[in-house]
Amino acid sequence: MTALKKYQKLECTGLWRSAPEAQRREVVVSFGEASLTMSDPRTELALSHWSLPAVERLNPGERPALYAPGADSDETLEIEDGDMIAALGTVQDALVWIKPHPGRLRTTVLAGASLVVLLLGLFWLPGALVEHTAAVVPPATRAEIGRMVLADVIRLTGKPCVEPLGKRAADRLARRLFGNGRMTILVVREGVLWPVHLPNHQILFGRSMVEAADGPEVLAGHALAEQLRAQAQDPLIPVLEHAGMAATFRLLTTGELPAEAVDGYAAGLLRAVPPPVPEDALMARFTEAGVAATPYAFSVDETGESMLGMIEADELRETPPQPVLQDEDWVSLQGICTK
C-alpha cells in the first residue's frame, strides 16, 4: 500500500461498457484504497466497483489501455490517462510476487503466499474480509449472486408466481414504496413464513401471507421493515459467511463466486427469524412512505399490546394517506399465484 500512496484520490475519465452488447459510456474513474469506482459524471452515482487485485489489463502495451474486473467479466473499461494506467500497473506489479513464475525459487513464492494467507487469517478474517468484499462487489456481480441465491431458494419454494395482473400489481407496490427500479417484490407459493431479502434488492413474500393480509398496508409495512433490515446489514454478508473464507477471497480477487458456494444457503435463510427493527426508525420510514403503520402493527401482534407505541404514534391511521394500491391492484396481487 505504501507504493500506492501517491495515487490516492486519483481520478480520470474513461469509457465503460457494462456488457459486450452495451454502448460505451463516459465515466469518472476513481482510484481508491481497495477498489476502482466508475461513476456517472453528471449524477456522481457509482455505476460499478472493481476490486483492485482483480483488475486485469487486456491489451498490454497498447493505448487506450483496456481493463476488465477479471478475464471472464462482461465489463470493460478504456483509459487514456497515463497516471491512472501507471497506478493500475503498480497494483499489478505488486501482485506479481504471489503468482508462480517459472525459474524462480518455488519455496520463496509459496512462503510469501502462505504468509499473506496467515496474516489475513490472523488480522482480517473472517468478519472484515466479508464486510470489505460485500462493500466493493460491483452491482453486476451482486445481481448475479442474487440470482444464484434465488435459484437456491426456488428449490424449496418453487418459482415466483407470475400471473400477469398480479405481477403488475407487485411491481406497482414496489414502485409506490421504493421508487422506480430500486426494489422488486416477488411472491412464492410455499416455504416463506415471513419476508426475506436477497442481495440483488428483491423481497420475497409467501403466498399465504399475501392472501391472508387484510390490505396492502400490511405487505407494505413488512416490505419497509425488510428494507430497514437490509440497510442495517447488507444481505450479501450472510451469503458470504455461508460461502466461506476461500470462496469470499476468490470473489474479492477474481470477481467471481463459485455457484456451489451458495448451495444450501436458502434453508437457513427461510428458517431464520427476522431481527426486530427499532420502532422509531420504522415509524420514520412509514411516515416518509406515506403508509399507515397500524395495519402492520396488528399483523405482527393481533392484540396490539407489544406494538402499542407504534399504533399510538401512527398519525396516518385517522387520515387515510395516498392509497398504497388501488382496490383492483390489491385483488390482483392476492391472486398472483392463481396460475
Rank of each mutant, 00 (worst) to 15 (best):
T184W: 07
G179L: 08
G181S: 09
I185C: 06
S208T: 14
G206H: 00
L173E: 05
W194S: 11
T184Q: 11
G221R: 01
D214M: 01
R168G: 11
R172I: 02
K167S: 14
L204D: 05
E217C: 06
V187P: 01
P199S: 00
H201Q: 15
A223N: 14
E211K: 09
I185R: 04
V192Y: 02
A213D: 04
L193K: 13
T184D: 07
E211C: 06
L219P: 02
R172W: 07
L204S: 04
V188G: 00
L204G: 05
H201E: 15
R176E: 11
D214L: 07
G179I: 10
H222W: 15
H201R: 15
A174M: 13
R176W: 10
A223P: 14
P199N: 06
L219K: 00
G181R: 06
M209R: 11
R168Q: 15
H197G: 09
M209V: 09
L219N: 00
H222S: 03
L165H: 12
D171P: 04
V218Q: 04
D171I: 07
V210E: 00
P164G: 07
E211Y: 05
Q202W: 03
A169F: 08
R175L: 13
R207G: 00
R168K: 14
P216W: 05
R168N: 12
D171Y: 08
N200R: 08
L186W: 05
H197E: 13
R175W: 12
L186G: 01
G179Q: 10
G206Q: 03
E163C: 08
G221N: 05
P199W: 01
D214N: 06
A169L: 03
G215D: 07
M183W: 09
F178A: 10
H201K: 14
R176V: 13
G215W: 07
E190A: 06
L204N: 04
A169I: 02
N180Y: 11
V218N: 02
M183S: 13
P216L: 05
S208Y: 11
A174V: 15
G166F: 11
A174W: 13
H197N: 14
R172A: 12
A220V: 10
R176Q: 14
A169Y: 10
V218R: 02
M209A: 13
M183A: 13
G206E: 00
K167G: 14
L186T: 03
M209P: 04
G221D: 02
V210C: 00
R189D: 11
A212E: 12
R172Q: 14
R168D: 12
K167P: 07
H197C: 06
N180S: 13
A170H: 00
M183R: 15
P195T: 08
L177D: 05
N180W: 09
P164W: 06
G166T: 12
E217D: 12
G206W: 03
L219T: 06
V192H: 04
S208W: 05
N200E: 13
I203T: 09
E163Y: 04
L219G: 02
H201A: 15
V188N: 01
R172E: 14
W194V: 06
V196G: 01
H197A: 09
V188I: 06
L173S: 10
D171F: 02
V187L: 01
A169C: 10
I203E: 01
